[in-house]
Design a protein around this nucleic acid. Structure first.
Length: 211
DNA sequence: TGCCAGGCCCTCTTTAGGGCCTT
């Protein structure tokens, strides 16, 4: 059974290119419909959080001061993930911080692994959703609450539940047994109307028919 | 709930602009 790692960062801002740093990471490891592992840690990158970020995330400067160094946390996170493919909500954001924080470590950790994005997939699959914020999609699907929004583990848990819903819906609507990460990546890039054809082509390309 | 960025997506588009989404 293929594993997928659902990841969420809390950060000091929106752009590592502008000097922003990660403050917290959470990873939920899923296998099929089961959560098989969790990793979560605050991290101290030696930066100060703005009052806005303290309020937005609930993470304080005092909490960051007491947290382990960012390089230690990221090294541990990379060991936890290994080569498992990644998923995030608005993955372009988390991908940038994943790459930027790991690049600081050096040591040959892959900086740009494939990411699937629950936001892009939701835009394809749920045109009636209205909003594609994580919280709005959780409400749309009546997913269970996982704690305080905008903390890494709570958001990673919700994103993992959303991913489970997405995979269930693809299985049901397209008659397939499995929804591998590669199929998610393919679907998030195709036009909404092209999803059925993309599912057929994905399994056809791999030499076995969809169930 | 703001500013910074970047990618996606829609439309009053494509020789562009603006909203959404992430912190």
């Amino acid at each position: 059974m293929h594993r997928i790692a659902v990841i969420d960062f809390e950060t000091t801002g929106l752009s590592p290119a502008m000097g922003d740093r990660a403050t917290e990471i959470a990873i939920v490891l899923v296998e099929g419909t089961q959560v098989v592992g969790r990793f979560q840690s605050l991290m101290n990158a030696g930066v100060r959080l703005s009052p806005f970020i303290e309020d937005y995330t609930g993470i304080s400067n005092e909490m960051i001061r007491a947290a382990p160094p960012a390089d230690e946390v990221m090294a541990e996170a990379a060991r936890f993930v290994r080569d498992v493919p990644l998923v995030a909500h608005n993955a372009a954001f988390d991908r940038r911080f994943w790459a930027a924080e790991l690049e600081r470590l050096g040591g040959g950790v892959p900086l740009n692994p494939p990411f699937a994005c629950t936001m892009l997939l939701s835009r394809r699959l749920y045109p009636q959703a209205g909003s594609y914020r994580l919280g709005a999609l959780a409400a749309f699907h009546a997913l269970p609450s996982a704690g305080r929004a905008h903390r890494a583990m709570a958001d990673a848990e919700v994103a993992a539940a959303l991913l489970g819903r997405i995979r269930d819906d693809i299985r049901r609507d397209h008659g397939v047994d499995e929804v591998p990460h590669g199929l998610l990546v393919r679907l998030q890039r195709c036009q909404r109307q092209a999803v059925p054809k993309a599912v057929r082509e994905y399994f056809g390309d791999r030499g076995h028919a969809a169930a």
